[in-house]
Design a protein around this nucleic acid. Structure first.
Ligand SMILES: [Zn+2]
Ligand SMILES: [Zn+2]
Ligand SMILES: [Zn+2]
Ligand SMILES: [Zn+2]
Lengths: 135, 135
DNA sequence: GCATTGTTGAGAATGATTGTCATGCCGTCC
DNA sequence: GGACGGCATGACAATCATTCTCAACAATGC
């Protein structure tokens, strides 16, 4: 059974108020900054357990580093701003249908899929490309 | 300008006859097995240059390791067998439309997307789940 | 041939993630 | 409240893919 320890509570609370994807290293540092010292190994273990339990989502960035985020339960995808990290959860059925259709067409079974969108949100676009461009 | 060296030729030739995604480490070993000694750093550099040039595709597996594969030029996605590595290139428009629709709906620009399917191909399914099941 | 300059490779360095294991603390049962 | 069994923790070592360094090399152009 999962014991409720100071460390797990602290990490769960932190994730609850963290809107963007963060790495285990970042979470460890954020906890330290908040005066909650939690061992790095514990952060890794806990965040992975939460991922397996479906309580957090995992996202791999370009260099392979894993980022974690508290998310709604259930299968969904993400739209992430590559500048500020703002994240939108996507629950549409379009990708699900595409995946299962492709799986059938090619005689594959047990097909999982990943689908993530990375772009620049309106606010960051205004800041980067010049605030005057937008009406 | 890109010079044509023994190492680059060997790696390009190897990729040309390798149908599945392979890691840099694997490619390095395969070259060694074939009697073509190529430094590991060179394999990494070359395979990354090829990826930037669009000559090979990169796929990140669950633990973050990068796999490379000679692919048709142009944007596409993949359906990969998690048992044998068999890979099918997917060129459909369904995902592209989904991605651009979502981007518009949420006011994001410069949106890239990744979408990969991983399952078990017919042959592996027959071998694993019992060969008698299929008619 | 020869100079120029991009390329190579052995080994060190980096950095995220995982393993180790003695100690600690949660939940439970008196 | 207090003892106990066992999962949880954390400082540290270990792993391992990837990147860096830099002297020695080798395409390419003349
Ligand atoms: Zn999510
Ligand atoms: Zn989906
Ligand atoms: Zn491809
Ligand atoms: Zn696409």
């Amino acid at each position: 059974m999962q014991r409720m320890t100071r460390q797990r509570t602290a990490l769960a609370d932190l994730l609850e108020v963290t809107p963007d994807f963060r790495s285990a290293q970042q979470l460890h540092q954020l906890l330290k900054d908040a005066g909650q010292n939690v061992g790095l190994a514990t952060v890794y273990r806990t965040v992975q357990a939460m991922a397996e339990a479906g309580d957090v989502d995992v996202l791999r960035i370009e260099d392979g580093e894993a980022l974690y985020r508290r998310c709604a339960r259930g299968h969904h995808h993400h739209l992430v701003c590559r500048e500020c990290g703002k994240t939108v959860e996507l629950a549409g059925e379009a990708v699900e249908r595409w995946a299962s259709r492709i799986a059938q067409e090619h005689d594959f079974v047990d097909v999982d899929h990943t689908a993530e969108l990375v772009g620049i949100c309106r606010d960051c676009a205004a800041r980067i490309y010049g605030g005057g461009a937008r009406a």
